[in-house]
Computed example of a mutant assay.
Amino acid sequence: MSLGSQIAANLPFLRRYARALTGSQVSGDAFVREMLEAVLADDTLKASLAGGRVPLYRAFSKVWGSVSGAAATGTATSEHEIGAQARLGTITPPARQALLLTTLEDFTVAETAAILDRTPEDISQMVASAIAEIEREQATSVLIIEDEPLIAMQLEDLVISLGHTVSGTAATRTQARAAAAEAMPGLVLADIQLADGSSGLDAVDDILSVGTMPVIFITAYPERLLTGDKPEPTYLVTKPFQEATVRAAISQALFFGSTKPL
Rank of each mutant, 00 (worst) to 15 (best):
S61Q: 11
S141F: 00
T212W: 12
A113L: 07
A76V: 07
F60K: 05
I144S: 06
D157A: 06
L101D: 14
I192Q: 15
G4D: 14
E79R: 08
P261Q: 06
D147W: 01
R33A: 08
V26D: 13
A50V: 11
Q175M: 08
G228Y: 03
L189D: 13
S5A: 15
A248L: 09
T44Y: 08
D43S: 15
H80Q: 14
L116H: 08
E223N: 05
T212F: 04
S251I: 00
A180F: 01
I123H: 07
G197D: 15
A113E: 10
L194W: 09
A98G: 03
S209V: 06
S48N: 13
D42C: 05
A84N: 04
P185N: 12
S78F: 03
Q175D: 10
E81G: 01
F107M: 13
F241C: 04
T259N: 14
A110K: 12
I131M: 14
D106K: 10
S24H: 04
G51E: 15
I134M: 15
S124P: 01
E121I: 03
V237S: 12
T103S: 15
G197V: 09
V188F: 05
G200W: 05
Y57C: 10
A183F: 07
T119I: 07
Q154H: 04
A183H: 12
L14C: 00
V159N: 05
G257N: 05
E182N: 03
P93E: 13
S68I: 03
L14H: 01
G163T: 01
T44Q: 15
S167M: 01
P261I: 05
A195F: 02
Q85C: 06
P55I: 06
S2I: 03
V166L: 04
L11H: 10
T108W: 05
K46L: 12
S129P: 00
V109T: 15
T119M: 09
L254W: 01
Y17L: 09
A38F: 09
A20N: 09
P240L: 07
E148M: 04
T77D: 13
A128K: 13
T174R: 08
A139C: 05
L150D: 11
T112Y: 12
T92L: 11
D229G: 00
Q138M: 09
R136K: 14
S129E: 15
G257H: 02
A113Q: 10
V39Y: 06
V127F: 05
E111V: 04
T102S: 13
T238G: 01
Y57L: 15
S251M: 10
L101K: 10
V26S: 12
D122N: 10
E105I: 02
A170F: 02
D196E: 13
A41C: 08
P231W: 04
T169G: 01
V54Y: 11
G200P: 06
S124Q: 15
F31P: 00
E243V: 04
S78V: 01
